[in-house]
Amino acid sequence: MSAVGVGIDLVDVARIASMRLRYGDEFLKRNFCDFEIDYCGKFKSPDIHYAARFAAKEAIVKALGTGFSGGITPKSVGVKNGENGAPCAVLGDAAAKRLKEIGASKILISITHLKDYAEAIAIAEE
């Protein structure tokens, strides 16, 4: 397999906390899938998990070469944990179409976070 796209993003956890405090459920419903809201909401400090997932969304759309455009929105690109706990990209129709257009068949993602920052990388592979 070879990489056809790569993306990376770093998110300030305090920024996500501020947006969540200011806009509440509207912010969450606009930017996160229901399964992401359920996952992050289980934690005592959910903002770091929201930040990590948002970083992954940004990294994914960078790997696709689109950003959030052409029908690809933050809510149409999601992150679930696989059976082994590893994060997996969940793509809506527009993102899946773009993945095929660039000659890729899957996106690999990795997420990490500390107290103040969350980071993710995404690699689109043939």
Score class of each variant (00 low, 15 high):
I37H: 07
Y50E: 05
I107Q: 00
Y117F: 14
L28R: 00
A63M: 00
G67E: 00
A63G: 01
P74Y: 04
F32M: 03
D25E: 15
V79C: 03
V11P: 00
H49Y: 15
G70M: 07
V4D: 01
E126L: 08
G24V: 04
A104I: 04
C33S: 14
A17C: 11
C40A: 13
H113I: 05
C88G: 11
L64N: 01
G70D: 04
R30I: 07
V79W: 02
V79E: 00
D38A: 15
F35Y: 15
G41V: 12
A104Q: 03
S110E: 05
L64R: 01
A118H: 04
L114I: 07
F68S: 03
V13M: 04
A96D: 11
Y50L: 09
R30A: 13
A89K: 00
A95R: 02
L28P: 02
I16Q: 04
I102P: 03
G70I: 04
K44S: 13
V79N: 00
E36W: 03
Y50S: 07
F35N: 06
Y39M: 12
I16A: 12
K57A: 03
E83P: 12
G67W: 02
R22D: 06
I8H: 05
E125G: 04
C40E: 03
H113F: 10
I102G: 12
V61W: 01
A104E: 00
C40S: 11
K115G: 09
P74C: 07
S69H: 13
D34R: 10
C88I: 14
A14W: 07
I37M: 12
A94I: 08
R22S: 13
F35K: 03
E26Q: 07
I37Q: 02
H49N: 12
L108Q: 10
L64A: 03
I60M: 12
E101C: 11
L114K: 11
S2E: 14
D34Y: 08
E83H: 07
V79I: 14
V77R: 00
A89H: 01
G103D: 04
I72P: 00
I8Q: 08
A95Q: 02
A96S: 13
E83Q: 09
N81Q: 10
G5D: 02
K80W: 06
I8T: 13
S2T: 10
V6H: 06
A122C: 14
A104G: 15
Y117M: 09
L91A: 13
A89G: 05
G24E: 09
F68M: 05
L28N: 01
K29E: 14
E126I: 09
H49A: 14
E58K: 08
A51T: 07
K57I: 00
I16R: 05
S76P: 06
N31W: 03
D9M: 07
F54P: 02
S110A: 12
K80I: 12
